[in-house]
Write a protein that binds this DNA or RNA. Structure first.
Lengths: 232, 232
DNA sequence: GTCTATATCTGGATAGAC
DNA sequence: GTCTATCCAGATATAGAC
């Protein structure tokens, strides 16, 4: 699949995402009119991601945020009840997005080789479309309070498990050689994450997400197809 | 090389590192007695890394730090002149450590294959010995002010260049197939970083740094040795 | 050299006018 | 629904005693 086709197929605007978010959290938001709420939530999320990814969530004051979002402090507090809750809101929405899209794009594929390929592409393409969300989730995970941190860790392991499962299936069917599915999946995940964590680097090199996807697929294929014998 | 042997060979205690740091920054530190200064710097660095890696540098108050380091606020300010400077101090020391150790361990090796292997091992082993430093440097890079951020980016590209150079040499000598050295090196770096960024995961899986090093070397070898032909 | 005490400021959160 | 004004906890940084 080409990136442009993917982009069209998911059609994710900030407002779409916020609309879904509002529906899921209608009780927590004081503002009653949906149109108004979605519009301002979009502003708040966008500003949170922009400012946080610049200076870190902890260093972003709510005054910064209210200025950048174009809302007063008072208005801001009609949408969030605390800064911590805002963090949770953004993370939660990012996670459910990944689960949904990744699931949709790979569940129906029977061939492990094709499934792995689709998984890699989907993960990279999605992280390209909503890069600020991915970057934010990764970077702000460590600072999470209480049980929210656990959720984030589960999310990390969730996608890893998906890839490990595909690899395991491929080994079972004799398509891949006998590697450690868990470690292989972990390494793959590291490469997928590198795409959105070091965007400045890849951008500077004029590397497209399609080129990167192809590279990762080739590297993984080389490892999964290699002969068992070892030289050296 | 075995990890234990590496560990002995570098013998890096927090105090050794601080001693070197003090020598390089003698003018910035008000306390005159070297013994006292080194001892307290070690406490400050150790506490900074511990608390920051727990809750993030921005969220660490200097009260937290002074308590954790066992120094009063006043004493603390005899060693640092501001919180920003502390950030710079820790990062700077981490960087110079990496350059030194990585350089020492690979410069004399002529065979690209062996050199790559040694580079991977050294990077992983070092990040294991001084994990808090690596983690801190990675996580707190984005929040840096001014030109300090540039230094951190250069450091990222520096090690990447080392590995790209080795791969390029290997290709030139006909030992590796014709891959993109820069992209390959970037992917390798992502895997090396994963080791210290997701320590919780690897620890939980009882994975040793030697096992991980072997895995990465094998994966890279598979890619670099693979046939050019591709199955569809 | 290190401590306690404190000046000063910043940021999260809220009350109440519009 | 949104704004301004304000409260107050907690932060950085410093002064001056010991």
């Amino acid at each position: 699949m080409k990136f442009e086709a993917f982009k069209d197929s998911v059609r994710l605007s900030m407002e779409d995402i916020c609309e879904e978010f509002l529906a899921r959290n209608r009780d927590r938001i004081k503002v009653k009119k949906d149109r108004v709420a979605v519009k301002n939530l979009a502003k708040i999320f966008e500003a949170t991601l922009r400012v946080s990814n610049e200076k870190g969530f902890a260093s972003m004051s709510l005054r910064d945020l209210s200025r950048e979002a174009g809302l007063s402090m008072g208005a801001l507090y009609s949408y969030i009840s605390s800064k911590d809750e805002l963090l949770d809101m953004v993370q939660q929405q990012g996670r459910s997005l990944v689960f949904k899209i990744l699931g949709e794009h790979i569940e129906e594929i029977p061939d492990p080789r094709e499934k792995l390929k689709a998984g890699i592409q989907t993960h990279l393409y999605l992280s390209e479309v909503v890069q600020p969300w991915f970057y934010f989730s990764y970077m702000e995970t460590k600072n999470l309070p209480r049980g929210v941190h656990r959720k984030a860790i589960e999310a990390e392991l969730f996608t890893e498990k998906i890839f490990a499962g595909i690899i395991e299936e491929g080994i079972g069917k004799g398509l891949f050689r006998k590697v450690d599915p868990q470690m292989t999946s972990a390494a793959l995940k590291a490469m997928l994450q590198d795409w959105y964590l070091k965007r400045w680097k890849h951008e500077r090199r004029r590397l497209s997400v399609e080129q990167y996807a192809e590279f990762v697929i080739e590297l993984m294929s080389a490892y999964l197809d290699a002969k068992e014998e070892k030289g050296g």
